[in-house]
Amino acid sequence: MTAAAQINGFAIDAQNLTRRFGSFIAVDHITFDVKTGEVFGFLGANGAGKTTAIKMLVGLLAPSEGVAHVAGFDVHSQREQIRRNIGYMSQRFSLYADLTVRENIRLYGGIYGLPPAHIEERTKLMLDTLGLATNADDLVGKLPLGWKQKLAFSVALLHEPKIVFLDEPTGGVDPITRRQFWELIYAAAARGTTVFVTTHYMDEAEYCDRISIMVDGKIAALGTPTELKERFGADSVDDVFVRLARGAKKGEAA
């Protein structure tokens, strides 16, 4: 836990947050909080309800029940304010493949209302950091997957949000790129951005300040990686996960 977290309190807090689809309960009364400046890992098998939970937090889905605050704003009534304060990178690559790198950055800069000079400056900085300077005018669709993911992450941070939500950002990416991706995450956290990240790579969980493990729509465990390993007498987060997931009714079987 960083010093900033202790001073500012919570970036996210959720109480009994629930989402039903008909009779199916995708997210079942989850309660948790994320401290400001923290890298919070949101773990779970496919189908455990991670994406549904994240969609409720970013305002893409209305919760069926429960309350949650993101950056201090209510997910039911203050979505507009939430949107100004968060960045979001979805599971699916969602930059425009038929626009160039530069055009994508400019578009999102414009949507967040950044002044043109500021967009220029951020673009240059971003391209240099990512090593994409020579590819600025390439269509994004033509870039390798790893580069796309890093670019999407940087674009999600363009407007310097307080919190960034990453939904399986490293899916399908090679280990070296995953490593580089986590360096970007740490860099963002070091600048004070709260990072809420879902993953099913358990080695990545070890990089988080705290993690929660979702099983069948419920949070089965929550704590720092060290705490959880001790509590379950396990060698790794992977081990903890396997023990919890074994009791699952849906999830990986689905």
């Binding site: 970013v58 893409l60 949107r83 979001y88 699916r92 969602s94 930059l95």
Partner: peptide, 11 residues
């Protein structure tokens, strides 16, 4: 394409 979700989380 999923780009609509991305636009929907912006202001």
């Amino acid at each position: 394409l999923g780009t609509l979700d991305q636009l929907s989380v912006t202001p």
